[in-house]
Design a protein around this nucleic acid. Structure first.
Lengths: 158, 158
DNA sequence: GTACATCGTTAGTGCGACTAACGCAAGGGA
DNA sequence: TCCCTTGCGTTAGTCGCACTAACGATGTAC
């Protein structure tokens, strides 16, 4: 292997190169990697951001409600809340009105953290969408949104 | 929960709903599920299709070369070739010119199978892209292709 | 000939989506 | 009042997939 340009990614056959479902998979793989690694560098995960953002926009909520809004399974949400509360970004308290529930509340530190993550996520999204101009990004977002709506939102817990 | 329309997917916060990286993840999740389940119903997997298509378009190849073209790790490719050859769709033979390699060859049955999978994948892609008209599908494909090219093809083995 | 690279293969890791089942609490009839 | 159903938080565990590490065997370069 003497030519570094040929080391990897010998071109795939035409059928695969233009197959939309495959394109989605591959692009998402890159995108997820960039986001996951970027967030890991800030001691965070995608779910952390999703939960914090949901709390800020909709106010305190039970874990089940957070699960419905974010698409994270409530079984997995337990660990997320543990991590967030261990960092002091969130508070978990039993709901006096319904003793089955925990009320999750965003703390001041959580709000600060969310600001930083907003900026970070923005720059990571920029990295993913680098080759597209503003109009094209809007196009992509609109197309994806329509697909998502058609298929019924996040696939996860319901 | 008496209203079936409200059972699931309480709307997510705006920040999440418009975040392109998240949209990609969610749409791909739906897409992958549809494709994977559709192929499973025909006793096939995504990788089977990728390998068969590559073999037809580029002719017989070693496993390492198939790995580069499809993006499947050569460690995982072993099982794929096993499955394909067990079904008589492919033949694995040692390469007399380079005894490290196996030459993988598409059989007649493999070609027939590929035809059926082509049709199946087409209909599954239709299902994924249902809400988009032809022009919009082209748009989406073009945008995704540019993103993929920018990030250097399939992320996998190189 | 010796050092290095490539090939096929085996084994194993890590993570994310997803399921099952539990004890507990709330609400709605009879 | 008892029961039955439903929702809640939590624990444990499964499954598939991307990915790594290492191996013996073979080919290639110096």
């Amino acid at each position: 292997m003497t030519d570094p340009a040929e080391e990897r990614n010998t071109t795939a056959p035409a059928r695969l190169r233009t197959l939309p479902t495959r394109l989605l998979s591959l692009v998402t793989m890159h995108s997820d990697r960039i986001v996951t690694e970027g967030l890991a560098g800030a001691d965070a995960r995608k779910w952390h951001y999703a939960v914090l953002a949901t709390l800020e926009e909709n106010g305190p909520a039970s874990q089940a409600e957070l699960s419905r809004r974010t698409g994270v399974y409530r079984s997995d949400l337990v660990a997320v809340i543990n991590e967030l509360s261990a960092r002091g970004l969130v508070e978990r308290a039993p709901d006096p009105a319904d003793r089955r529930r925990n009320v999750i509340t965003l703390t001041g530190a959580g709000r600060d953290r969310l600001r930083r993550l907003d900026a970070l996520i923005g720059s990571l999204a920029d990295e993913v969408l680098a080759p597209l101009d503003a109009a094209e990004r809007d196009q992509l977002t609109a197309l994806l949104t329509r697909l998502l709506d058609h298929h019924g939102g996040h696939p996860g817990p319901g």
